[in-house]
Amino acid sequence: MNDFSSALWTALDLVTRFDPDLVEIVVLSLEISLTAVLVATLIGLPLGAALALARFPGRHFLVIVLNALMGLPPVVVGLTIYLLLSRAGPLGAMGLLFTPAAMVIAQTVLVVPIIAALARQTVADLHEEYDEHLRAIGSGPGQRMATLLWDGRFRLLTAILAGFGRAIAEVGAVLIVGGNILHSTRVMTTTIALETSKGNLALALGLGLILVSLAISINAAAMLLGEAANRRYG
């Protein structure tokens, strides 16, 4: 119990002081995860929608694989990307290893299946409901996809927030591809891992509390924005 109250005080202290180290890792964490989620959304939404609407042999199998990829072990993703980006690997010449860019790539890979699989489910459900109507009014395939994605916007927002949650909470992949370098690739989760390994448990837990609060705030903000937009635009 001592560690818990100690953690709480540590967290409050860091936050109220705007501790510069804390600010630095929070900003970097957000930069990386938000970028990853943005890219993953741009890839995952159309991918999921296409998978929901297209019909081709092996589609069912692909859907099963996509759903399974939601559970990709982050450390495996990290290792794979490390091997790809290493100088000894195929993409080594890009010099991306141990940079924030590599961390964005890793998190994107982890998040795309979540957004795509949930988008697929959302679009498939709406497709069942809307398809006759959309065809009856003469909607083309591209228009239909756009309509389904827009009408599914709340469920898709939830999917995107789920993706963000996965990204910001992830430590295994970003540790391997980022290297946890001070002032460069050290984010909240890797700092927590580091402080834990140093035995500074109260500090680690305090940082964890801050991370969770951050995630809650972002989710809350997204939900409020969503509801406000809904009221305005219906």
Partner: peptide, 19 residues
Amino acid sequence: VRVVAVGTGQAIRIARNGD
């Protein structure tokens, strides 16, 4: 100086790869 701190075995691997 950007330090990647890992186990010795991994550090040597990293250096070997030229990373």
